[in-house]
Amino acid sequence: MSTGPLILGIETSCDETGVGIVRGSELLADEVASSVEQHARFGGVVPEVASRAHLEAMVPTVQRALRTAGVTMREIDAIAVTAGPGLMGALLVGVAAAKAYALALDKPLYGVNHLAAHVAVDTVEHGALPAPCISLLVSGGHSSLLLVEDVTRGVQHLGATVDDAAGEAFDKVARVLGLGFPGGPPIDRAAADGNKSAIAFPRGVVRDAPYNFTFSGLKTSVARWVEARERAGEPVPVADVAASFQEAVVDVLTARAIAACKEYDVRDLLIGGGVAANSRLRALAQERCDKAGVRLRVPRPKLCTDNGAMVAALGSLMVSCGVEPSTLDLPADSSLALVRV
């Protein structure tokens, strides 16, 4: 059994109410209540629906996590919570809950950065983080390329999407193809039977920003291509479209990530976020990392999507490194800056 502080982590930045418990770097519980089904008919996350669901799920999810971990509330040494970035109304539910637990239990409170937490979670699976490392975080809410020196002190943004997040592009293309929400898993499945070179979809480039992403042009050109087929009365080769679209996304993501590793002379790449579950992203990243002599780390899919374990993992690192706790007036910040000095 590992030693170290016992940390309760709370995550409510989007549509998952996540509560995780870690002791040191040992994961004891990772409970998630998702409102994704309530958003499906809207084709995307509705902030007010997510916020309402967080309020209902908060106490039951904390209770479940404590039971799973086999610990009592009184044993918790510190509370960590996502302070941002994310949906404001959703963040506020988690932050208020974390403050109340910290106040009631008289334990320190740590407001953490959601993206840094996506990076930190890998410590519970693969041990201490290599420093520095490059991190590619891709989900329905974010697409970011980060340089991570010390995750407890912040992360440096090298680039981000200038329009749609990668996961959002999957959702929108899935809608064009009639594959449902969220779009990532069905596109991954459909693409398995398709030819990834069948259609040459564009790879978006952002001028003067080599590490930024743009997916809105890709999404539009997929829609245009499909509409041309429909208008001509021809069947739409769903598998080929899915495979070619997916290839365009993961080609850009992995190429930029490897380029960043080379430019910053970093030997470790860590991929996180819900899109990290995509099988083609994992395969192509591995292939390109091997070629470039870069070690690839990807947490298991359950830890890649939003969860409380990642918040607890980062909180644990912050406690161990002696980072000052937050005060009870900690604000939720929907656009939290990535680098904290």
Partner: peptide, 10 residues
Amino acid sequence: RVGLVTAATL
């Protein structure tokens, strides 16, 4: 919701 979640968690 800030009030209600605070009451629930306290």
